[in-house]
């Protein structure tokens, strides 16, 4: 089995466990093992944008240094926010020699020195590299009849230096989902922000964004939304309750990680998909479409 270095991040281990479980299951069938780093810390979640704030670049750079320490040349992330932070911190180390030296001075006790050698990739990029043919081979159950809205969010696409695909009209997510036989819908909010970290301070922003995004997906004919960011997932799932309270007649829509859909298509049962951990359960929709047997958990 091919091994790939893997940086999980804090949310994958707490509220997005189903993302990790399903990703490991999917990659297992493709002959790839996620080799989790022995030592890792939080990446800092958001990339620091001010020029004098170098101390906040240490956390992502230190994580990349751990990858180098363990002999890896690239690292895979599942979480979109971790991906963006690690990738941009890596680019900073590569491009800005002055700041790189300062960061090195901060980490003078580390034996291994880091110069930006590690490549940061997202799971979608890894799947593309494995080859869509191999993914297609593994598909046991065709998800035909299911209409899916692929929600990219911000962190996979912006800014341009960290983008995994075209910045305004990306297709990589649709390409992966289409392999399962499911149909992807075209909806205008697929790369628009969900409100991000404003959930606690300004819930009104996130409630409006959630309503707009979910309604847009529904109007395009989607049965559920697939995504890859745990923060988007929390905002879009948990805030639907508040939207339903505020707007009469709002219907909830299940939000799933794209790996859960792949796991379902690869023939895994509940142990691989873990639909029970989703806040808005997609089980009912799946039973209606005939992909899950009713009553069997």
């Amino acid at each position: 089995m091919e091994k790939v270095k893997y940086y999980p991040g804090c949310t994958i281990k707490t509220t997005a466990q189903h993302f990790e479980i399903s990703a490991i299951a999917v990659l297992g069938k493709l002959g790839i093992e996620l080799d989790e780093l022995k030592r890792w810390t939080c990446c800092g979640t958001v990339y620091s944008l001010t020029s004098d704030d170098i101390i906040h670049q240490l956390a992502p750079v230190r994580n990349l240094l751990r990858v180098k320490e363990e002999g890896g040349s690239e690292v895979v992330t599942l979480c979109s926010m971790c991906y963006n932070t690690l990738k941009r911190a890596n680019l900073l180390v590569k491009k800005d020699i002055e700041k790189k030296d300062k960061i090195k001075d901060f980490m003078y006790k580390e034996i291994v020195k880091y110069d930006g050698e590690v490549k940061v990739i997202h799971l979608l990029e890894l799947l593309k590299r494995i080859g869509f043919d191999r993914l297609k081979e593994q598909t046991k159950i065709s998800l035909s009849g299911l209409k899916i809205a692929t929600y990219y969010g911000c962190m996979l696409l912006r800014p341009e230096e960290a983008a995994i695909d075209d910045i305004e009209e990306p297709t990589i997510f649709e390409d992966v989902i289409n392999l399962t036989g499911a149909e992807t819908v075209k909806f205008p909010y697929k790369n628009e922000c969900c409100g991000s970290y404003q959930t606690l301070r300004r819930p009104d922003i996130v409630i409006e964004r959630t309503r707009t995004i979910v309604n847009s997906a529904r109007n395009a004919g989607a049965d559920l939304i697939a995504l890859s960011c745990p923060l988007c997932a929390y905002n879009l799932e948990a805030k639907q309750e508040d939207v339903a309270e505020k707007y009469f007649g709002f219907k909830k829509m299940p939000i799933v990680y794209f790996t859960q859909l792949l796991a379902l298509a690869f023939g895994y049962d509940e142990s691989g998909t873990r639909f029970d951990l989703n806040i808005v359960s997609p089980t009912e929709k799946m039973e209606e479409k005939g992909f899950l047997v009713k009553g069997k958990v």
């Binding site: 949310t11 979640t45 923060l231």
Partner: peptide, 15 residues
Amino acid sequence: EKAPPILLVGTFRKL
């Protein structure tokens, strides 16, 4: 209690 860690870290970092 329900909030994911990235939400809390992000809020504190930005605000």
